[in-house]
């Protein structure tokens, strides 16, 4: 299963998905969120929804020097935090900006494609699909 952004034009910018992602991880607020919503240069132009698109050949994994990020079956990566040195190569390698960063522990935050955020998208922007 992987998360898919169906249509950003349907996004109203409520950011409920961002809060959902943090909540899924047992936290309140947005520090832990692996999805980002911002305006496309003024809200009248609509929104940009930034989330891991589960690449088949993920650049973040290709540049990881410690084997922390490993390609996952069906796309995207698995994240083994015990191996991570916080070098940040993965963040630089993702052209979409989907590797979010936890400043407190200096480690990446990686979408696991659980689809919890999609359950809190009232307007059908996000969908979990095969």
């Amino acid at each position: 299963m992987k998360l898919s952004v169906v249509d950003t034009e349907r996004c109203v910018g409520c950011q409920s998905c961002m809060f959902a992602c943090s909540r899924r991880q047992g936290e309140a607020g947005i520090a832990r969120t692996c999805i980002g919503v911002r305006s496309a240069g003024g809200m009248e132009r609509g929104f940009v929804v930034i989330v891991c698109r589960a690449c088949n050949d993920p650049p973040c994994a290709k540049v990881c020097p410690t084997g922390t990020l490993k390609p996952r079956r069906g796309g995207g990566v698995r994240f083994d935090i015990t191996k991570c040195t916080g070098c940040g190569h993965c963040r630089d390698a993702c052209p979409i900006g989907c590797v979010f960063w936890d400043d407190e522990i200096n480690k990446p935050m990686i979408c696991i494609h659980c689809g919890y955020c999609a359950q809190f998208c009232p307007y059908g922007v996000l969908k979990l699909e095969r």
């Binding site: 109203v12 409520c14 950011q15 409920s16 809200m43 809190f120 009232p122």
Partner: peptide
């Protein structure tokens, strides 16, 4: 277009 405030699903 319709927009929402942050953390309000109503829009």
């Amino acid at each position: 277009r319709r927009l929402a405030c942050s953390h309000c699903p109503v829009g």
